[in-house]
C-alpha cells in the first residue's frame, strides 16, 4: 500500500498530473470528497440544532467499536462496516437517554461517549495493546484507503444522501423549531432518529479521512463557516459542502506536497476558511453600518 511515508524522498518532484494519476490519490480524493459532502450537509442541521458535539461522542463510540473489531481480529478492510451497528445503536442510545432519563443532550452524549472510550481502552489493554492500525483510526489515513473501502464509502454516501433528500423538508422543519414542527403533525422523534442515525454512519465513514479525534471538526467547521456568509438554507448547505470539499482536496494535496498528516491538514484548512468567512462577514457588517 503506498503511503505518504514511502513518497517522502521524492514528493517535491511530483507534478499535479502525476499526483492525480496515483491510484491511492484518486481513491483518497473520491472518498474524501464524498465524505466531506456528507459531513457538511449533516453538519448544518447538527450545528443549528446545537447538537454539534454528537459527532465527537459518536467518534468516541467508534473508537470502542474499532477496538472490538481489532480484538476480534476482523479484516482491517471491514473494520468500518463492523463498527457501524454499534455506533448506530449508540446514536439511538443518546436519544433514548435524553428522552427517557430526562437528561440534557450534552450529558447523554458525554455518557455514551465515555462508555465507548472506556470499552476501547479496556479491550486494548486486554489484547496487550494493538499495532499501528488503531493509531491510523485515531488520526485518519485517507491515503491508505482501499478499493473495497472506497466502494463502501460510495454506497453509504448514496444511502445517506438519498435519506437526507427524502426527509429534507422535515429535517428543515425540526431545525427551524422542533415544537412548531411537532404542532404541524411532524413525527419529530422519528426525524431526530433519522438525523442521528445518518450522523452515526457518516462518523464511521469520516474516521478514515480525519481520524476519530478530528471527526467533529469536519462536521462543525464547514457548517459554521458557511453560516457566516450564506443567505438561505439550501445555499448554506451548498456553501458548507463547497468548503468541506475544498478543505479535503487541498488537505490531501497539501499534506502530500508538504509531507504532513492529512487529517490535521484538513482541519487546519477548515479553520482558515472559517477565519476567512468570519472576516468577510465582519467586513460586510462594517460596510453595512457605514
Amino acid at each position: 500500500m503506498p503511503s505518504i511515508c514511502s513518497l517522502r524522498g521524492n514528493h517535491y518532484y511530483v507534478g499535479f498530473t502525476e499526483f492525480i494519476s496515483y491510484g491511492f490519490i484518486q481513491r483518497a480524493l473520491l472518498a474524501g470528497t464524498l465524505i466531506a459532502v456528507l459531513c457538511a450537509v449533516l453538519g448544518v442541521f447538527l450545528v443549528l440544532r446545537r447538537l454539534s458535539l454528537i459527532g465527537d461522542g459518536l467518534a468516541h463510540v467508534t473508537f470502542g467499536s474499532v477496538a472490538i473489531a481489532l480484538y476480534l481480529r476482523i479484516n482491517p478492510v471491514y473494520v468500518t462496516v463492523a463498527a457501524i451497528p454499534l455506533v448506530l445503536l449508540s446514536s439511538l442510545g443518546i436519544l433514548k437517554l435524553t428522552d427517557k432519563a430526562r437528561i440534557y443532550g450534552d450529558a447523554a452524549i458525554g455518557t455514551v461517549s465515555s462508555l465507548g472510550i472506556a470499552c476501547g481502552i479496556l479491550l486494548a489493554s486486554a489484547a496487550g495493546g494493538f499495532n499501528v492500525d488503531l493509531f491510523s483510526y485515531l488520526f485518519g489515513s485517507i491515503l491508505s484507503i482501499s478499493s473495497t473501502e472506497l466502494v463502501i464509502s460510495v454506497g453509504l454516501f448514496g444511502v445517506v444522501m438519498l435519506v437526507v433528500a427524502l426527509f429534507y423538508n422535515d429535517l428543515f422543519a425540526i431545525t427551524f423549531d422542533e415544537e412548531l414542527a411537532k404542532s404541524s403533525g411532524i413525527k419529530t422523534e422519528r426525524i431526530n432518529a433519522v438525523l442521528v442515525l445518518l450522523t452515526a454512519l457518516t462518523v464511521v465513514l469520516a474516521m478514515k479521512v480525519v481520524g476519530i479525534m478530528l471527526i467533529s471538526a469536519l462536521l462543525i467547521l464547514p457548517a459554521v463557516s458557511a453560516l457566516q456568509i450564506s443567505r438561505g438554507f439550501r445555499t448554506t448547505i451548498a456553501v458548507a459542502a463547497g468548503f468541506a470539499v475544498f478543505s479535503v482536496v487541498s488537505g490531501i494535496f497539501g499534506s502530500f506536497v508538504l509531507n504532513l498528516p492529512t487529517g490535521g491538514a484538513i482541519v487546519i484548512i477548515n479553520i482558515f476558511l472559517f477565519i476567512l468567512a468570519f472576516a468577510l462577514k465582519s467586513l460586510k457588517g462594517v460596510k453595512g453600518e457605514g
Partner: peptide
C-alpha cells in the same frame, strides 16, 4: 419559538413554506 436559533439561515419564503 422555543428552539429558534437567531442564526438560522432560512429565508422568509422558506419559513412560510414550512
Amino acid at each position: 419559538l422555543k428552539f429558534f436559533n437567531p442564526n438560522f439561515p432560512g429565508t422568509v419564503e422558506e419559513v412560510v413554506r414550512l
